[in-house]
Amino acid sequence: MIDNTLAYWGILKKDMRNYYLKPPNISWGIIFPVSWTLMFYLRSEQAVDIRAILPGVMALSILFGTTSMLSVTITFERKSRSFERLLLSPISLNLLMLAKTTGAIVFGIINAFIPVLFASFMIDLSGIHWGILSLAVLFIAITSTFLGLFIAVSVNEVFEAQTFSNFFRFPMMFLCGLFIPIGNLPAIIRPLSYILPLTYGSDLLRFSVNSEASIPVAANLLVLVLFSGLLFFLSTHNIKKRWIY
């Protein structure tokens, strides 16, 4: 019997070293939240409220970090045929995909806490519900990573992965309530917000940082779990259909 734990750690370690801990990605993890904060600062006519924008910057850092990295790395490995090596190994497809996504989940979590670290030098962070914040970050990272996985297994080329990612990311950015409260959106668009996982993640983050929420915490978590399960199922189904033809 194959020791699956060793295979899992092997893949995770290889991905961390080959992709996530590369200097350009580390610097990207820092530059990205700084750019977002700066963007909010420039568009604001008065002093920017760091605490108010913190959930948004955290959510976008996770979303962009995970989807970009995973969709590109998997498409790249698929192009170079090294992904074939993994598919031909004696570990189950589910475990293989969990190993491939764990690195991106960790990368997303680290990306989320970089803005928190910056904010801690500028504002008082007391009153934050750290437990809920951690859960929110974890579940947003998992859902976004699985979204990246779904994108990766639906395309053939690296550039397609980027284009397809934006197809999901940009509507999510504007419709999930981060920039414009969902209540202020036109009634016809509002239902769309509720089929986007980031809506529930950002609601959780807003609750944990600013104690404002429109959906109960448990419901937000449950919806994120359901989104994660669905995206993972669709991704592995797609792999079986397209790559193990």
Binding site: D3, L6, A7, K14, R17, E84, P90, I91
Partner: peptide, 28 residues
């Protein structure tokens, strides 16, 4: 399985590539 194209990891060394491949088979 040895495919018709070399499909190991470009940035990893020879030793590292072999050790990684061994881990896929659960070798200690």
């Amino acid at each position: 399985i040895v495919p018709d194209e070399s499909n190991l990891y470009d940035d990893m060394g020879g030793f590292e590539n072999l050790v990684f491949c061994a881990s896929l088979y659960g070798m200690k």
